[in-house]
């Protein structure tokens, strides 16, 4: 059984191991871990070359989890993702055997999900939502924990199939990966331009511990006034018609509270604080709000609008 009082230190140890390989993306790593603890999935929006695959792979190593990667391309078929029935011959007899696809993993990185066809996207989304997949009328369940990290490139939108808002809503968080600072980039250059062999990452959390931590994350208590704060914030996204075309659904309220609880646990606290909610409001809401023309005309991003809403509710 994991000792909770040491979880804060465990997370510090995890960051320390991650920083051996991934430099300058602490905030992204923290949000990905929060999504994992909340048993949700995350959508990563970043430009190419910012270490998305490296983050997921290193995280899987540090958490002793199975990792797989799916590259989104226009010719990617659902069976390429979920798996297919293969004919196998044993002792002269032939029979169908289900060959699991890359989705049967603990951490699945779907690179450029917007390049895959809607049919393939829906196969992924089924696995995300229900933690199972159906092939040839047979249902196969995913292993626990199961976490999909889908990525989108904000540029290069030609020939892509952007995820509809209703599908984006199924992702708990939308994490923005920014460019590293010049100091961090210098460290990256020093490390990777000279490095011959990849650094070894030690196992910090076991699979069993992670499942237990997911349970603890849901148990973190939250006060009534903070719950009301969350509900007011989400309701305001639906009523502030001056800048928002469509607001967030009650799924966002549930997601924000879960993410805040996970954030509190990562910081080693036994309760949810206002800061947890404010920190998590941005990744939870930025893909759930559709801004209108007036907001675009004023040059306001979704993050700017979320900031205004938080100030109003405070």
């Amino acid at each position: 059984m994991v000792e909770l009082e040491k979880f804060g230190k465990t997370f510090d140890a995890l960051m320390e191991e991650m920083n051996k390989v991934v430099i300058g993306q602490d905030k992204v790593i923290k949000q990905i871990v929060a999504a994992i603890l909340s048993d949700g999935n995350a959508l990563l929006e970043s430009y190419p070359g910012l270490g998305k695959t490296l983050i997921c792979k290193t995280l899987a190593q540090a958490m002793d989890l199975k990792f797989s990667r799916i590259q989104g391309t226009p010719d990617l078929m659902p069976s390429d993702v979920t798996g297919t029935q293969m004919i196998e011959e044993v002792g002269g007899k032939r029979y169908f055997k289900f060959q699991q696809g890359p989705i049967f993993s603990n951490i699945v990185l779907v690179d450029e999900v917007n390049r895959a066809t809607p049919k393939t996207q829906s196969a992924l989304l089924e696995a995300m939502a229900e933690k199972q997949t159906t092939v040839s009328n047979k249902t196969y369940e995913m292993d626990s924990p199961f976490f999909i990290l889908a990525t989108q490139n904000p540029i290069d939108q030609e020939g892509t199939y952007p995820l509809p808002e209703a599908q984006q809503d199924r992702f708990l968080l939308k994490i923005k990966v920014d460019y590293p600072s010049p100091e961090d980039e210098l460290k990256i250059v020093d490390q990777y331009a000279a490095l011959v062999k990849a650094k070894e990452v030690k196992k910090v959390i076991t699979k069993a511990n992670l499942l237990q931590l997911q349970e603890y994350a849901r148990q973190v208590p939250i006060s009534n006034d903070l719950k009301q704060f969350v509900v007011k914030l989400i309701t305001l996204t639906r009523t502030k018609k001056e800048l928002i075309e469509y607001g967030a659904s009650p799924r966002a309220s549930i997601g924000l509270i879960l993410a805040a609880k996970s954030n509190a646990l990562i910081e080693g606290r036994n309760h949810v604080g206002e800061k947890d909610i404010i920190d998590m409001a941005y990744p939870v809401l930025r893909h759930r709000i559709i801004v209108n023309f007036e907001a675009e005309r004023q040059g306001k991003t979704t993050d700017d609008i979320i900031k205004e809403l938080i100030e109003k509710v405070k």
Partner: peptide
Amino acid sequence: LNERLRTAEDTMGQDNFMIQRLRTE
């Protein structure tokens, strides 16, 4: 005690591992 006391008061009717830890604190 910031936020802790309020949370402990609001979760008086609930019981789980994390809430017990909060109460002890």
